[in-house]
């Protein structure tokens, strides 16, 4: 068994929390530039220019791009030949989030009870998704997720008869209804298949793919292109003030499902599409 120390995990998670909030991904920067060149609306162009400038300030001054530094969503791919020394893995993740959000001057946005709503004060607990894989490495991805875009997400348990057309309609309609609220141009993560909770997770994982990289599944890749074109016709545009660039990308993940089911989830991410990873 290969050992990774508790302290190492804390330090890496803290760093990822800060960097995901300060440094816009290169794929997103490229997508902004592409959208700026393509955008028909002068207001839309002005907004994209502001977003590019904002990312430069955040990077140079090491400050958060957005004041909503999000819920800390953490994806773990844990090799089955790895063990953590010095403490529990999830405690290390939460200690890392606590340190990253406190020392990184990030906003604390977690409340301890959904109805009583008292802030936990340190942005914990993180929401942690773990996969056990082969090997002796630990991959950690921190994806801070803002409330504005998360609130516009949706799920539908469709009848299989709804088919491809039903799925497309649901995704496009979710984006249309979201309008300006989730900070377009958005990234649209779609999960098709699995069951109720699996399709939601598929949709969230789809947001981690580099922007514009098509699905490995050819059928899904075609759907991504077709839904993307439909979304371009909506006219919502940057910040919803009208324009061509409502989405930077549509990413679809698929999974086998029950003979009676066609679950579909749409998880919307804002234009910052924040996530940073490390392999230990």
């Amino acid at each position: 068994m290969r050992e990774i120390s508790y302290e190492k995990i804390v330090a890496e998670v803290a760093r990822l929390c800060r960097e995901a909030n300060y440094f816009l991904g290169e794929d997103v920067t490229k997508a902004f530039e592409k959208a700026l060149a393509d955008e028909e609306s002068p207001t839309g162009k002005g907004i994209l220019e502001q977003l590019i400038k904002n990312a430069e300030i955040a990077r140079n001054e090491e400050v958060p791009m957005c004041q909503d530094t999000g819920v800390a969503v953490v994806f773990l791919e844990m090799g089955q030949d790895v063990t953590v020394s010095g403490g529990a893995l999830y405690d290390a993740i939460n200690d890392g989030v606590r340190e990253g959000y406190e020392k990184g001057y990030l906003r604390k946005s977690m409340v301890e009870h959904p109805l009583q709503r008292k802030n936990t004060g340190d942005n914990t607990p993180a929401i942690i998704h773990t996969k056990i894989v082969t090997g002796d490495k630990l991959k950690i991805t921190v994806a801070p997720k803002g409330g504005g875009s998360e609130n516009m997400s949706g799920i539908s348990m469709m009848a299989p008869a709804a088919g491809e057309e039903g799925v497309k309609k649901f995704v496009v309609e979710t984006v249309r209804k979201a309008g300006p609220n989730p900070c377009p141009p958005i990234v649209v993560g779609v999960g098709i298949g699995g069951n109720f909770e699996k399709c939601a997770l598929l949709a969230k994982e789809a947001l981690l793919r580099p922007i514009g990289q098509p699905s490995d599944d050819e059928y899904a890749a075609r759907l991504e292109r077709e839904i993307f074109e439909e979304i371009r016709k909506l006219g919502i545009g940057p910040q919803g003030m009208g324009g061509r660039n409502t989405a930077l990308a549509v990413h679809i993940n698929v999974h086998p499902c029950h003979i009676a089911s066609l679950p579909v989830a749409v998880n919307i991410n804002c234009h910052a599409s924040r996530h940073k990873s490390v392999i230990l």
Binding site: A58, V63, P64, M65, C66, Q67, D68, T69, Y105, L106, R107, S109, G147, G148, N151, N181
Partner: peptide
């Protein structure tokens, strides 16, 4: 409508963009 991030030393305020209004 804003909930800013904490100010870093030397800053007047942290990052301070708008939140969703509805």
């Amino acid at each position: 409508y804003v909930g800013p991030t904490p100010a870093k030393p030397g800053q007047v305020i942290g990052s301070a963009g708008p939140t969703t209004s509805y």
